[in-house]
């Protein structure tokens, strides 16, 4: 498997002195589905922002395939915790945005936008405004907007955290279906052990204060994964293993807190 990007000794310290991420080294392969799991404040979202170039690293390097330090603007997609749609624009115009910013006129983008909306089951909602949609539908629009430019790397920052359990399960399946169909690399931030195990090839468990990697767990379960897999002993065993790693992360965080106290 080719490496898509590599983080070498990456650290991030904010202006107020908070060390958000410390010495993170990680290689992400092409077509991987990697989840970042950890308690609040462990730097999961910060790692995504560093990779996206939305925040500069304080130390270390992030290297893309072929050693290129920079990435193509449309090689990368970002799905935020909130749908982050433009409320004044229709669903079509929201999904068109990445292509529009790249200079693609509406007519030329029409087929691509329609396909992206069809992929998330919202083909008939192109003319709707975000306020007319449910939370799950808004998140689908957000995913369609990200996918319309066919990114090689998709960064998802707790995208389903605010949704109800059933919608979340459906969107987990939808995300996996898109990932398998379009063969992008996915980096997924979540608080949920169950979601991380269900979706991922790899789970990076992080501890807070400072944010650092404690475990890199491989989930050797073939895809496609169906909802029935959630009821298997193998799934439960993996959840236990990841939960234990997460508890260790919390303990490490408590120790760090006591040490500082």
């Amino acid at each position: 498997m080719d490496t898509l990007l590599e983080l070498a000794d990456v650290g991030k310290r904010y202006g107020n002195g908070t060390l958000a991420v410390q010495s993170l080294s990680l290689a992400i392969g092409e077509h991987e589905f990697v989840s970042f799991l950890g308690p609040s404040g462990c730097g999961k979202s910060t790692v995504l922002r560093l990779i996206a170039g939305l925040s500069p690293v304080s130390q270390g390097t992030i290297t893309w395939r072929g050693g290129a330090p920079h990435r193509d603007a449309h090689a990368l997609g970002f799905v935020f915790q909130e749908p982050t749609l433009m409320p004044w624009a229709t669903v079509f115009d929201n999904v068109w945005l990445p292509l529009r910013l790249a200079g693609r006129p509406r007519a030329a983008a029409r087929a691509g936008v329609a396909a992206a909306l069809a992929n998330v089951g919202l083909a008939e909602f192109a003319g709707a405004y975000p306020r007319e949609l449910s939370g799950g539908m808004k998140m689908r629009v957000s995913i369609a907007r990200t996918m319309v430019s066919r990114p090689r790397l998709l960064l998802l920052d707790e995208p389903f955290a605010a949704l109800d359990e059933m919608t979340r399960f459906r969107l987990n399946d939808d995300t996996l279906a898109l990932w398998q169909a379009q063969r992008f690399t996915a980096l997924f931030v979540t608080h949920s052990v169950y979601e991380a195990v269900y979706l991922s090839k790899r789970i990076v468990v992080m501890a807070a204060r400072p944010g650092r990697m404690l475990a890199d767990i491989h989930v050797d379960e073939p895809y496609p994964r169906q909802a029935g897999w959630r009821a298997t002993a193998r799934y439960n065993a993996l959840c236990v293993q990841v939960s234990q790693a997460l508890q260790a992360a919390s303990a490490a965080q408590a120790d760090a807190g006591a040490g500082h106290g």
Binding site: A73, F80, T84, L97, L101
Partner: peptide
């Protein structure tokens, strides 16, 4: 303007 939308515009090099 929503900070995440601002980030999105930066991400797409608007």
């Amino acid at each position: 303007a929503d900070l995440n939308l601002r980030d999105l515009y930066r991400l797409y090099r608007a």
